[in-house]
Design a protein around this nucleic acid. Sequence first.
DNA 1: CGATGTCAAGGAATC
DNA 2: GATTCCTTGACATCG
Length: 322
Amino acid sequence: MMDEEVQERRLGFAVKVIGRAGFPSHDPRRWRSGPNVGVSIAALHRILDYVGEEKIRMYRMSSDFVPYVTHPDMPQFHRQIAEHADALAAVGEHARRRDVRLSLHPSQYIVLNAHDDSIVQKSINDLDSQAELLDAMQQGPEAVVVLHVGGAYGDKAAARDRFVRHYARLSEAAQRRLVIENDEFTYSLEDCLWVNARIGVPVVFDHQHHRLNPGPMSAAEAARAALATWPPAVTPKVHYSSPRLDGREIRRGKEVRLEVPLLRQHADYIDPWTFADFLGTLRDLRFDVMLEAKAKDLALRKLRADLRALGCADVLRQPRAS
DNA sequence: CGATGTCAAGGAATC
DNA sequence: GATTCCTTGACATCG
């Protein structure tokens, strides 16, 4: 029966618990109040208890988990990971005990392929720190740091080359943890595969980004190509979201138009039919699915319930590890 | 106490 | 060159 559990695909959600009150993701206080990773660790223990109850086995931690840890003007915060090594190892053990796969996704300000070297160096410091955190939590190779390739700066090929060059400056830990994700505007899945071919960094397939910024491959083909970039011993993962369908009406005299950009945003919940169709094309492959929906853990719980109600919960089953 | 302003950070589109 | 959006919530401060 252990084997049956292993056959269930992991579904995950990002950062914020909204299905229950009183589960902050980290210590959110401003620097004047002396925020500390110890508070974030206590918060994560609570979240792990919650996801354990809900049988959720994947969770993206807040990228602000260690407050101000790389802030250039605040060296007093820079040693938190070393100072809390024991507590970090303990919370990491808690996650492993519950079989919860952890990940991190640095914010939009982390741009490894920037022109400005001060931005590059700040980004490297942040990525090194995020990898150091997962190492301190003694997580296996499935705990990855997910990053977009970055800006285009009017010359995508040159910017892509810069990503490859700057990657070499990351710490060993950051290089080992880093994976890249296709984005909705600039770097398509093909671009990510190009980077993978150069430096071996695995690719997270983001379904909605692929639909918004597609190449020649269908979603299923693109997902297969991305999944193949992962080492055989590491379960890959993909990102899945549904578009916001409501629109804000803008009235100008008699004319009424709808704001289209909302479509690029994440919906509150996941459309179970399109989700099931997509997973149905990949039944033979092992991978986890990170859901990106505004309703977070509630969206995950609702998706599971919806798939059961619609009779397609079998798409959450996957082949055994080989 | 409720309302408002603020938060470390970048890129790109728009004007 | 400057402004705004992206997107996010809750801290922090003010009235």
